[in-house]
Design a protein around this nucleic acid. Structure first.
Lengths: 343, 343
DNA sequence: GTTAGCACTCTCATCTTTTGAGTGCTAAAT
DNA sequence: ATTTAGCACTCAAAAGATGAGAGTGCTAAC
């Protein structure tokens, strides 16, 4: 459908535009001696490429700009594999000494990703509801307040403070903790409320006094919010892109960034592997002129999260794709090593 | 030094400019019948106010704009106390059921503050290093990895995962945890490394085998990062202000927002009470054309954090000051109630 | 002391001009 | 049958031109 020469020209045009952000014209192209053809020849080919929908003009007498179809073709066929050296070993470096904190690793990865690319990175923390309870602990801080701590088999720690109901003794707490540990160990987080309702409640009735009213309260206490956490890197990077030279554009971008639930939805859909969504391929209005690259990473026990990068459609796909591949693999590797599910 | 009429005019001008963001002229002012003087009279008074440094012109024939000195006078003398109703009870509402999480309260407070004002709010979490150790726990997740949990007397939970050194048995861990609890309970966080070095090390030598090399590692594990946490609300709000109609201005603002250490410094200086820094009174270049309001809040045990609000110098000081007062009081109240230091 | 009147100033929005890079098409060259 | 040179034409963006509007300062009258 496309001749070799057309492909070559398409590639050069896209490369050029990705770098310069300016419409590329035939004369300018033929001057740089990447292509051994005259301006007129290039012009003719450009006209054909435009007719086939790979290029566009911003106005009748402007140079050409890649269309979304053009980028799509470029991503699918014109970029070969490449290894982005700088990306290698980022994760490893963070956990050299054997001590690590999930949040910190992810946050640093997000920052590194954005720094290396100059785009905005978003990492979606793993969905936790399949993780299971490893241990529950309640620790009194004073005679009025206490803190409840829940550790999952994957090493995540959730905690919540609360005011102690009047008349609860420390032996009551001890009993409660025993019951909870007995019944909840190995139970996935999402089933906690159910188990408390069905099993813990009756046991509490049996062994403790006056607890009927507090069962709801305990259920609330141990109901984990399903909220997956988002980690951002380089939210300000996007402002360096010339396509963000417009205040309204910036406003709409940042307002989207604050609607975290929408972003979660945007990233959640991602299946295995790396996915590139160019411009209108995205469903969210605010990023229909941006490209979104998503890749998933896995931690033990089937849980996974998503790494994403958001930049102009005029994105350095070559660099970015290789980088995403490396980072998602390294994340998976690092996580899997420690969070192996032996509960 | 200033006549009553000048004060009155100054107040009206500032009020007007705060609302409209446009230089206010004598004709326009005299038309609104807030002031019973003719344009010419107002003009003369304006000239005097300008000479005294309370007003400025943006160009030779423009209306007047308050100078920083003008705002300073306005804040110090021209706004009376007022109670901002919407602000009342925000914190209480968050902890109705007796269950709460510090992070969530603070985050929600930041969001509420920014929503009510349309400026950007920043809350500095409390400095933790004076908090003392309540309990330490280590929980093995698999035979390679474990998670260490540290609870402070104020109910904060810190945790960190790590790879188990080879040849460490579960009884070793138990011993270690016992030693740590024995020696570290009641010790303030900032002294942990020191105590581990001086007291824990020798005990470990005595009761455990082959630990000499791992003492450093344990010290690292329990060294808390001093990093105080920042909570932002309404980072995008600032974009609605007409003074941010310039892309470079936005860039510099967001780039500052990403340099969290600088922001921490900016807020840390705050002593008791509410402090208003107008324009160049701020030391950080990027906000020399903004105003920063800071107020401190206290949780038990002498620890405190800072609430801040960042907006144009043309800020609704009246509203903002009353709101800040309310919120900082409520935060202090709520925190103190639970985090009472009974360790 | 206060105000009306007037000449003057400066911004902002709108319109016009110029310049430069680009295109399409036709005819000549390879 | 391609490829290329040449030429007329187009459009955006930058640079100037124009006029309206809101403001000021100053002087003289109230």
């Amino acid at each position: 459908m496309l001749t070799d020469r057309q492909l070559m020209i398409l590639q050069v045009i896209i490369d050029d535009f990705i770098e310069s952000a300016k419409p590329v014209g035939s004369r300018a192209l033929s001057k740089k001696d990447t292509l051994p053809y005259s301006a007129a020849t290039i012009r003719n080919e450009m006209a054909d490429l435009e007719e086939s929908g790979f290029l566009e003009k911003t106005h009748t007498s402007s140079g050409r700009v890649p269309s979304e179809k053009g980028y799509r073709y470029y991503v699918d066929h014109l970029i070969g594999p490449e290894i982005h050296q700088h990306g290698l070993g980022i994760i490893e470096r963070l956990t050299n000494n054997g001590i690590y904190e999930f949040e910190q690793i992810v946050q640093t990865a997000a920052e590194a990703l954005s720094k290396l690319t100059n785009y905005t990175s978003i990492i979606l923390g793993p969905e936790m509801f399949e993780a299971t309870v490893k241990q529950i602990q309640v620790l009194a801080l004073s005679d009025q307040s206490a803190v409840a701590i829940l550790v999952t088999n994957t090493g995540h720690v959730e905690h919540r403070s609360f005011t102690l109901p009047k008349g609860v003794s420390s032996s009551d707490i001890e009993k409660l903790v025993n019951i909870l540990n007995d019944r909840l160990q190995g139970v996935p987080l999402y089933r906690i409320p159910e188990v408390i309702q069905n099993e813990v409640a009756s046991l509490m009735m049996k062994y403790m006094n006056g607890v009927d009213s507090s069962i709801n309260w305990i259920r609330t206490l141990f109901t984990q919010e399903q909220a997956v956490k988002l980690y951002f890197g380089g939210k300000a990077n996007i402002l360096m892109q010339p396509e963000f030279n417009d205040v309204d554009r910036i406003r709409s971008f940042y307002s989207l960034m604050e609607r975290e639930d929408e972003i979660v939805n945007l990233l959640k859909n991602s299946n295995q592997g790396i996915k590139v969504s160019i411009g209108h391929e995205n469903e969210v209005e605010e990023i229909k002129d941006l490209s979104l690259i998503t890749a998933s990473y896995h931690i033990g026990g089937g849980q996974m999260g998503t790494i994403a990068l958001l930049g102009p459609t005029r994105m350095e796909y070559k660099k970015v794709l290789s980088l995403m591949e490396i980072i998602s693999k390294e994340m998976t590797g690092a996580m899997g090593k420690w969070y192996s599910d032996k509960s």
